[in-house]
């Protein structure tokens, strides 16, 4: 498989190319409009965070970017490549990987089998940072449980596995859907460090979060979502001081 439509375009705004651009994206579930024209972008090598209350469409946004929920209108560009019409299983070639909400793991597969299923060579000239062993080095706990079925893992271990599986794809753009949900502070710290490492490796990240401290700690840019739209965007520090936005959209 090759990239269908050309090489990644150079940056449109400024000189930093965009890892992800979502333009006026609309998506439905049945009759109800879940995404009503979402527009956002993530610059290459940066961490974008989407904040918002439950049910504003954050997970649907992730699924639409991944191609799992069909969009009715709008465009998804990954590294300048329009993937809007591509099936979900074709989108990985652009370097896209997802850490799904709720650690959707395969119960009967062992830890090692999970990671092997996710293995992909990196694209282009990029270095292969991730392999099964590299994931084990990052999460030593997973090495101890390499031969165990995922059904026997704890919540924290499952989250590590879900993250590790996505990393094995050597992604250029990583989508993470509420990775800290239900995790102990210790593991959240580990995730914070991991995200810093990924940034150093040049991976771009789009993160959906409810945990404000974690989100603002890792974010380069914050998008606030409400009723299927991005209603506010700013730098993380600006949001910290903006009580009005926090109260109105995040219920804080």
């Amino acid at each position: 498989m090759s990239l269908a439509s050309g090489a990644p375009a150079a940056g449109i705004e400024g000189c930093v190319p965009e890892a992800l651009r979502v333009d006026d994206l609309h998506a439905y579930y049945g009759e109800s409009f879940v995404l009503q024209g979402v527009t956002l972008s993530v610059k290459a090598g940066s961490v974008g965070v989407v904040l918002g209350r439950n049910g504003v469409g954050k997970t649907t946004l992730m699924r639409s970017i991944m191609g799992l929920t069909p969009s009715r209108r709008g465009r998804v560009m990954i590294s300048g490549c329009d993937v809007s019409t591509w099936a979900a299983h074709q989108r990985w070639v652009t370097g896209l990987a997802l850490v799904p909400q709720g650690r959707r793991i395969f119960p009967s597969l062992t830890v090692r089998e999970h990671l092997e299923i996710g293995l992909r060579a990196p694209r282009g000239q990029r270095e292969a940072h991730w392999s099964v062993e590299a994931v084990f080095d990052t999460f030593p706990r997973l090495r101890e449980r390499a031969g165990n079925r995922a059904a026997t893992l704890s919540g924290g271990e499952r989250q590590m596995l879900a993250v590790g599986r996505a990393l094995c794809a050597n992604p250029d753009l990583l989508l993470m859907d509420e990775p800290t949900e239900g995790l102990s502070p210790f593991i959240v710290d580990e995730l914070t460090r991991l995200i810093a490492t990924l940034k150093e490796q040049g991976v771009s990240i789009l993160l959906v979060e409810q945990n404000l401290d974690f989100a603002l700690g890792v974010a380069d840019w914050v998008h606030v979502m409400e009723k299927g739209r991005i209603v506010h965007q700013c730098a993380p520090l600006a949001l910290l001081g903006d009580e009005a936005v926090k109260r109105r959209y995040l219920g804080l």
């Binding site: 959707r104 009967s108 299923i117």
Partner: peptide, 13 residues
């Protein structure tokens, strides 16, 4: 166990 997850991992199910 999870067809959608396999699609997201790039498998042509």
């Amino acid at each position: 166990e999870n067809e959608e997850r396999m699609k997201a991992l790039g498998y042509n199910v």
